Amino acid sequence: MKVTHPLVSIVDDDESVRESLPDLLKELGFSADAFSSAEEFLASDSLGRTRCLILDVAMPGMTGPELHIELMRRGEKIPTIFITALKDDAVRPRLIEQGAVECLFKPFTDDALQEALNSALQPD
C-alpha cells in the first residue's frame, strides 16, 4: 500500500530556500513541491493537491500576500504559512488577520516550522 504524505508547496524566489526546504519537509514526513513565483504555482497541477502553502512575503511579480488573496478569491482554502526576511513587526499581525496560519521570520528553526505545519494541518 502506498503511503501518501500531505503535499506542502513552497513559493519563494530565493533558490536556496527552494533547494533546502523540500529536504526538511521530507524529513518531517511531507511531500514537497517548490516554485519560484506565484504565477508558476498558479499554473501548476500542484494547486489542487496542496494541503499547506509556504509563501515568501516579498517576491517579484505577485507577492505572497497577493497570491494568498487570489487563492481566497478563487475559493481555494489552503492553509498558508508565510516566511519573510523582512524585519517588520507590522507584517505578522496583518498576515494573521488576513487568514495566515503563521508568519515566520528567516532564519527560522525546524521546530518553529514543524509547529506551524502542525497548526496548518489540524483538522477543523
Rank of each mutant, 00 (worst) to 15 (best):
residue 5 H to W: 11
residue 10 I to A: 01
residue 13 D to G: 01
residue 13 D to M: 01
residue 15 E to K: 01
residue 20 S to M: 10
residue 21 L to Y: 04
residue 22 P to T: 03
residue 22 P to M: 03
residue 23 D to V: 12
residue 27 E to F: 01
residue 28 L to T: 00
residue 30 F to L: 06
residue 30 F to A: 09
residue 30 F to H: 14
residue 31 S to I: 01
residue 32 A to S: 15
residue 33 D to A: 12
residue 39 E to R: 05
residue 40 E to C: 03
residue 40 E to P: 04
residue 43 A to D: 03
residue 44 S to D: 04
residue 47 L to R: 03
residue 47 L to T: 01
residue 48 G to K: 08
residue 48 G to C: 06
residue 51 R to L: 14
residue 53 L to A: 05
residue 53 L to K: 06
residue 58 A to N: 13
residue 59 M to N: 01
residue 59 M to A: 11
residue 62 M to F: 00
residue 63 T to D: 11
residue 63 T to W: 13
residue 66 E to I: 09
residue 68 H to R: 14
residue 71 L to D: 00
residue 71 L to S: 03
residue 72 M to A: 08
residue 72 M to N: 03
residue 76 E to Q: 12
residue 78 I to T: 06
residue 78 I to E: 02
residue 79 P to T: 10
residue 80 T to F: 00
residue 82 F to H: 12
residue 83 I to N: 10
residue 83 I to H: 08
residue 84 T to E: 10
residue 84 T to A: 13
residue 85 A to Q: 09
residue 88 D to M: 08
residue 88 D to R: 10
residue 89 D to F: 15
residue 93 P to Y: 12
residue 95 L to Q: 06
residue 96 I to H: 13
residue 101 V to H: 07
residue 101 V to Q: 13
residue 102 E to F: 04
residue 103 C to M: 07
residue 103 C to R: 12
residue 104 L to Q: 05
residue 106 K to V: 13
residue 108 F to V: 05
residue 110 D to P: 04
residue 114 Q to L: 15
residue 119 S to A: 06
residue 119 S to K: 10
